[in-house]
Design a binder for these strands. Structure first.
Length: 285
DNA sequence: CACTTGACCTGTCCGC
DNA sequence: TGCGGACAGGTCAAGT
């Protein structure tokens, strides 16, 4: 599921709902999802909700930090205990939590709940020491490339990082979190389309002009997605259970056989590194 | 080093 | 209606 825009969409929603709240109780429906869970977290307050790459972090009092990875199908849905909707819930909202994919439930002091749902059960939660995240976070978060939506992300930095895998196809390299953070299968295809670059090209075959276009394509596709609340292929919903609508505006992803929005030729799909890559052969060279 | 495959899981969709 | 296979926003480890 979630790539940068989806995790960031969840982060923004959660931030305004749970900062300042105290954890009253954590229920492990599937304990394997949260191996380090401990009752010492009960009574801790939420200080901050942050994101790095596709990892969501929740800082708590007592120097505790919870790390969440949603992998393919993870959801973080927050609900008030008693819904005061003033009307019927919209059809794209989940309304009955927990459901059969719920793996962990956080209960807060105001009776609101945060549900971690995960159909495929690949996602995880880890408890770490907040102090160990300042400075060398590498050990806890893994080696992560630059955040593409930060101001200091330049085309030169993009090139420099991708060049650590000179002989790798550009689409594969873009999904390597150690080279650039937050891009997955959707935004790799989308940003290469915007840059008009063939996904099969090797990193060291790209010109500086192409790195500049790719840099802009990455930023533009991520920001466009954020604007539409992320991409919902099947499972993704935000912290209120609402879907994201970026795929309605995507140029190539999930559009095999449909007309390219630039040239009207058919969008093609092929397999690269075991994942589907979508592209327009006549626009992307 | 670069690339592939399988593993982790459940659910959905498509063809027969 | 049922059944098997392919496939789905991610990342690991192991093998070639």
């Amino acid at each position: 599921m979630p790539e940068l825009p989806e995790v960031e969409t969840i982060r923004r929603g959660l931030e305004e709902k749970i900062v300042g709240r105290e954890i009253k109780k954590i229920e492990l429906i599937r304990p394997k999802t949260f191996p380090g869970c401990s009752k010492k977290l009960w009574g801790k307050k939420v200080l901050k909700v942050w994101r790095r790459a596709k990892i969501l972090g929740i800082d708590l009092t007592g120097d505790f930090t919870l790390l969440f990875h949603l992998k393919m199908t993870g959801q973080l849905i927050w609900e008030r205990e008693s819904r005061i909707t003033g009307g019927h819930p919209t059809e794209d909202m989940f309304t009955h939590m927990p459901n059969k994919s719920t793996v962990v439930v956080f209960e807060f002091d105001d009776t609101s709940h945060l549900y971690f749902n995960d159909q495929r059960q690949f996602g995880w939660i880890k408890l770490v020491d907040s102090k160990q995240l300042t400075g060398n976070s590498e050990k806890l978060l893994g080696i992560l490339g630059p955040e593409p939506l930060e101001k200091d992300f330049t085309w030169q930095i993009l090139k420099e990082n991708l060049f650590k895998r000179k002989k790798t196809p550009i689409k594969i390299a873009l999904m390597d979190q150690s080279l650039i953070a937050g891009i997955g299968n959707i935004y790799a295809s989308e940003s290469l389309f915007l840059a008009r670059i063939d996904p099969r090209r090797l990193v060291n075959a790209l010109t500086n002009e192409e790195f500049k276009k790719l840099h802009q394509g990455i930023i533009d596709s991520l920001q466009a997605s954020l604007k539409h609340g992320g991409s919902t292929l099947a499972n993704f919903v935000d912290s209120e259970g609402k879907k994201g609508y970026f795929l309605n505006f995507a140029n190539v992803y999930n559009r095999e056989g449909l007309p390219c929005k630039n040239c009207s030729g058919p969008v093609k799909k092929f397999t690269q590194g075991g994942r589907g890559t979508y592209w327009c052969p006549s626009c992307q060279k």
